[in-house]
């Protein structure tokens, strides 16, 4: 009884996570510039990964595995924040145009 309830919760969490990955990919394809696309990937995908990790942690056989999953999620978060900042900074430096922002000083 408890086990099937737990499976249900895992299923819901994993599905919700998959939905956010779908949304992230939609943003990656539909958003107008590299800066907005970075938002889509960092936010939606990290929430998706968090939900999937939580769902899987419920099914994990032992606590070592659960902490392992938590560590992997935290590491992925730190990695995503770093990659996001690096790509945004180098895009700005290279002058990749941003939508809605006038990157030139007005005459």
């Amino acid at each position: 009884m408890t086990e099937s309830l737990l499976e249900l919760v895992t299923g819901a969490l994993v599905l919700a996570g998959a939905f956010f990955f779908l949304a992230g990919t939609a943003g990656l394809l539909r958003f107008p510039d590299v800066y907005c696309r970075l938002h889509a990937l960092t936010k939606a995908d990290n929430l998706g990964l968090g939900l999937i990790s939580l769902g899987l942690a419920l099914q994990a056989p032992d606590w070592t595995t659960r902490i392992q999953i938590l560590l992997i999620w935290l590491l992925a978060l730190a990695a995503a924040a770093t990659v996001c900042h690096l790509l945004a900074r180098s895009s700005l430096r290279e002058g990749v145009p941003a939508v809605g922002v006038d990157t030139e000083v007005d005459p």
Partner: peptide, 25 residues
Amino acid sequence: SPADRMLAAQLFGTTGVAILLVLAQ
């Protein structure tokens, strides 16, 4: 832009981790 192409790193980073965690289970 080259940065748009490099978004793949972010995509593989996060989605790849999710896929592997799901497959591990």
